[in-house]
Simulated scan of single mutants.
Amino acid sequence: MSKHNIVFIGLDTHKVSTEVAHIEDQRGAKTVHQGKIKTTKAAITKLASQYQSKYPNATLHFVYEAGPCGYWIYRLLTSLGHCCYVVAPSLIPKKPGDKVKTDKRDAMKLAKLLKSEDLTPIYVPEPEDEAIRDLSRARETAMKDLKDAKYQLKGLFLRNNISTKVKDNWSNQHLRWLTELVLPHPSQQIVLQEMIQTITERIKRVERLVNELAHQAKLWRYYPVVQALQAMRGIRFLVAVGTIAELGDLRRFDHPRKLMAYLGLVPKENSSGDNRKQGAITKCGNGRARRLLIEGAQTYKHNANVSTELQKRQETLPKVVIDIAWKAQLRLCRRYKRLMQRGKHRNIVVAAIAREMLAYIWAISREVILVPVDPSTRISRVPA
């Protein structure tokens, strides 16, 4: 047994149980189904010890699919000194004629594909980065719930032919008008009061999450990058922190085109010979970060200008970052107008601007020096 250098172990993880299979690193080796274990830290630690005892001179390489169970298995195995990979289910090769899918087959398939190097591991964020990402996603969910509550109230007004007399919706004046509104039936009045109360609670919930995100982001190791990205037009605090929370360390991309492809902002292509056919964007990768960039890209329809608010965000930033942001604004504003004059659809133009924004975001992230975080203060800074 000691002659093997690497043992590839596939894990088909679920909430309660995990199927295990392995294959040895030698020509003609067969995939072996190990069995089923519980999805607990104790069971996975025991499994790793059993494999280490069986193959004392071999390196153990574990692999499992990304899913709702998160990354705790990856962190557990790497803390034990083993190699672990997390792969996206959409990137796992599948034969067209393979119509039988079971947990046992999936575990054996993962081990075999890892040995043949046909799997592409995904980026696993650090626990601190994942915590900020969860907070950012919680704010986004709260905003969605607030919009849904407002749509329901507008639907009630539409059904009863009620039109508001206040132009600024959801302002203090508008909320006072809502409390003074009296509907003809007592049942509808109860519904109205419940909707108003729901909207008020959800507004406060969004405010709490935004304040907490602003506080926690200052203690985050990527806060200098968040500050630097706000030098660009269309990227305020929430967009900057949401983008970095979803993408993590941008320095792992050695070229901006790889970052564009990672976010699915490159066009589909089906070319053969002299024929080249391109379609819509692939929409691969992280959809939340792509949506944030699409929102920011729409601001480049206006002429290039440094507003008062943008200038305030740039006051404490290095000159090299400000120069990159101004260069980006000049180019992207011109490109937006040029594409619109060529008759391109507005959505296509915005997607193209968002794709080029990524190149400047990547360039800014390379200019920011991440100072090691002091454990006592946990605060980083942007060097002048």
Rank of each mutant, 00 (worst) to 15 (best):
I322G: 01
T179E: 15
V191W: 10
I73K: 04
R252A: 05
L146E: 12
P256Y: 06
S271N: 15
L292C: 07
P121M: 03
A231R: 04
R334L: 03
A351N: 08
V206M: 02
K15Y: 03
Q26M: 13
W170D: 12
K337F: 06
R276M: 14
Q216S: 07
P96H: 04
G67S: 06
I348C: 10
A21F: 08
I132Y: 05
S53M: 13
L60S: 12
Y336P: 00
E246T: 04
K301V: 11
K46A: 15
R331S: 07
K101W: 12
G285R: 13
L293V: 01
E246R: 11
M195P: 01
Y74E: 04
R346G: 03
G234E: 06
P372I: 04
A240Q: 05
L153Q: 11
K115H: 15
T141L: 12
R338H: 11
G97L: 00
A240S: 13
Y300C: 05
L339E: 11
G343A: 05
H255C: 08
N347H: 05
A231P: 02
L229G: 06
A240R: 01
Q189N: 14
K46M: 09
L358N: 04
L146V: 00
Y71G: 09
G242A: 08
S271C: 05
L339R: 06
M357S: 03
P372Y: 01
Y85K: 13
R236E: 13
G264N: 00
N347Y: 01
K147P: 03
K36H: 00
S307M: 00
H185C: 10
A351T: 11
P372D: 01
L259N: 05
L77V: 04
R176Q: 15
K115Y: 14
I9L: 11
L259Q: 08
E309D: 15
M357G: 03
G248L: 05
L146T: 13
P383N: 10
I281W: 09
A111F: 07
P318L: 09
V124Q: 04
R342I: 02
S307N: 10
P127H: 10
G35C: 10
K30P: 07
